[in-house]
Simulated assay, not measured.
Amino acid sequence: MQIAATARNLQGTGASRRLRISGKAPGIVFGAGQDAQKIEIDHNSLFHALKKESFHTSILDLDIDGQSSKVVLRDVQYHPFRAQILHIDFQRVDENTKIESKVALRYENADKSPAVVTEEGTVTPLITEVSVLAAPAKTPEFISVDLSKLSSKAIPGLQTVKAPNGVKIIARGANKNPVLVSVKLPEAAVVAPVAAAPTDKKKKK
Results as ranks from 00 to 15, higher is better:
G173L: 06
K112C: 02
L185C: 08
K98S: 14
R106N: 13
R106T: 13
I155L: 02
G173F: 08
L126K: 14
A196I: 13
F55K: 08
P156H: 04
K102H: 12
A5L: 07
D111L: 06
D75V: 01
K176P: 00
S58V: 03
K203R: 12
D200P: 15
D63N: 15
P186I: 02
G157P: 08
A4I: 15
N177M: 06
G121N: 08
Q77A: 07
T118H: 10
A15F: 02
R18S: 10
V76W: 00
I21Y: 01
K38L: 10
H79C: 02
V130E: 09
I64R: 04
T139A: 00
L60R: 07
Q37G: 10
K201E: 15
D200A: 15
K201H: 08
A188S: 14
T124A: 03
I88Y: 04
I28D: 03
R17S: 10
A163R: 04
V117G: 05
T6M: 10
A171P: 02
L150Y: 04
V167F: 06
K162V: 15
H43R: 02
Y78D: 01
A15N: 10
K38E: 14
M1T: 09
V190I: 13
E129D: 13
T97Y: 04
E108P: 08
D146V: 00
K52L: 11
V191I: 14
K176Y: 01
K149V: 06
K176S: 08
P125C: 01
A5Y: 09
A49M: 12
Q2P: 01
P125H: 02
L158K: 03
A5W: 09
H48L: 14
I28V: 15
E141A: 07
I28M: 11
K153A: 12
L105R: 06
D42K: 06
I127L: 13
R18D: 10
I155K: 05
L46F: 02
E119Y: 02
K203E: 15
I41E: 13
A15Y: 05
Q67C: 04
E120R: 14
A137N: 06
K205S: 07
P140Q: 00
K112G: 00
H48M: 12
N177T: 08
K138C: 01
N165A: 13
I88H: 04
S16L: 06
T139E: 00
D111G: 01
E119I: 01
R18T: 07
G12M: 08
I88Q: 05
P186T: 03
H43W: 04
L50N: 02
A5E: 11
E108T: 15
D111E: 15
D42H: 07
I170F: 05
T118P: 00
D146R: 00
V132S: 03
P80R: 08
I59G: 12
A135Y: 00
T160A: 15
F47W: 14
K168W: 01
R18K: 13
